[in-house]
Measured scan of single mutants.
Amino acid sequence: GSSGLPPGWQSYLSPQGRRYYVNTTTNETTWERPSSS
């Protein structure tokens, strides 16, 4: 899909309704949208 996220990243919603991002390669999580640069 065209999520616009860098490879390996997925976006999720927290129980509070906030969006966060997870790097499935490194298990890093961040509130900031990852850049593909």
Rank of each mutant, 00 (worst) to 15 (best):
G1M: 12
V22H: 09
S37G: 12
Y12G: 06
G4C: 11
P34C: 00
S37R: 07
S2G: 13
L13R: 06
R18K: 14
T25G: 07
P7M: 08
Y20R: 01
T25M: 15
S3Y: 14
E28M: 06
S11W: 08
Q10L: 15
S2A: 14
E28A: 06
T30Y: 07
L13V: 11
T24M: 11
N27S: 08
R33H: 11
T26M: 03
G1V: 12
L5H: 03
Y12N: 04
R18W: 09
Q16V: 07
E32H: 10
R19T: 12
S14I: 01
R18I: 15
Y20S: 01
W31K: 03
G1W: 07
N23M: 02
Q10W: 07
S36Q: 11
R33V: 09
N27G: 15
W9A: 00
S36F: 14
S36L: 14
W9E: 00
L13M: 10
P7T: 08
E28L: 06
P7I: 08
R33F: 13
S11R: 02
G1P: 11
T29Y: 12
P15G: 06
W31P: 04
P6V: 04
Q16H: 10
E32T: 11
S37D: 14
R19W: 15
R19A: 08
Q16K: 09
W31A: 05
R19S: 05
T26L: 05
S11Q: 09
Q10S: 10
Y21E: 00
T29F: 15
L5N: 04
N23E: 02
S14G: 09
Y20A: 03
V22W: 08
R19D: 07
Q16T: 15
G17A: 01
S37W: 11
P34E: 02
Q16D: 15
Y20D: 01
S3R: 09
G1Q: 12
R19E: 15
V22T: 05
S3T: 14
G17W: 02
P15T: 08
W9S: 00
W31V: 05
R18Q: 15
R19Y: 15
V22A: 03
P15A: 09
T24E: 09
S3I: 13
S2P: 13
G4I: 09
R18M: 13
V22I: 11
Y21I: 00
L13W: 10
P15H: 08
G4Q: 11
W31E: 05
E32Q: 11
Y12D: 04
T29Q: 10
Y12P: 01
S3P: 13
G1L: 12
R33W: 10
G4R: 10
R19F: 12
P7A: 10
G4D: 14
Y20L: 05
S11F: 05
E28G: 02
S3K: 10
G8T: 04
P15L: 07
S35D: 12
P34N: 02
G17T: 00
P7V: 09
N23Y: 06
R19N: 06
V22R: 08
N27W: 11
W31S: 06
T25I: 15
Q16I: 07
P6D: 03
L13S: 04
G4N: 10
W9D: 00
S11L: 07
T24I: 13
T25P: 01
Y21G: 00
T30D: 01
Y12T: 04
W31L: 06
T30S: 10
L13Y: 07
W31Y: 10
Y20T: 02
S2W: 10
S36K: 09
E32F: 12
T24A: 10
Q16N: 15
N23W: 04
G4F: 11
Y12I: 06
P6N: 03
W9R: 00
T26P: 00
E28C: 04
T29H: 12
Q10M: 14
T29K: 14
Q10K: 14
P7R: 07
S35P: 11
G8R: 03
Q10A: 13
Q10Y: 12
S35M: 14
P6W: 05
G4E: 12
R33T: 06
S2N: 13
S35L: 11
T29V: 15
E28W: 05
Y21A: 00
S36M: 13
P7Q: 08
L5E: 10
G4Y: 10
G4W: 13
V22G: 01
Y20H: 01
N27F: 11
Y12F: 15
P34R: 00
L13I: 12
T24L: 14
S11E: 15
T25F: 15
Q10F: 12
E28N: 04
Y21V: 00
N23V: 00
S14W: 00
P6F: 03
P34I: 02
L5S: 03
T30A: 06
R18G: 11
S2T: 12
Y20K: 03
Y20Q: 02
Q10P: 01
S11P: 04
E32R: 09
T30N: 03
T25H: 13
G17E: 02
T25Q: 13
Y21D: 00
Y21F: 06
P7N: 08
G1T: 13
T29W: 15
Q16G: 14
G8A: 04
T26S: 05
G8L: 04
T26F: 03
Q16S: 15
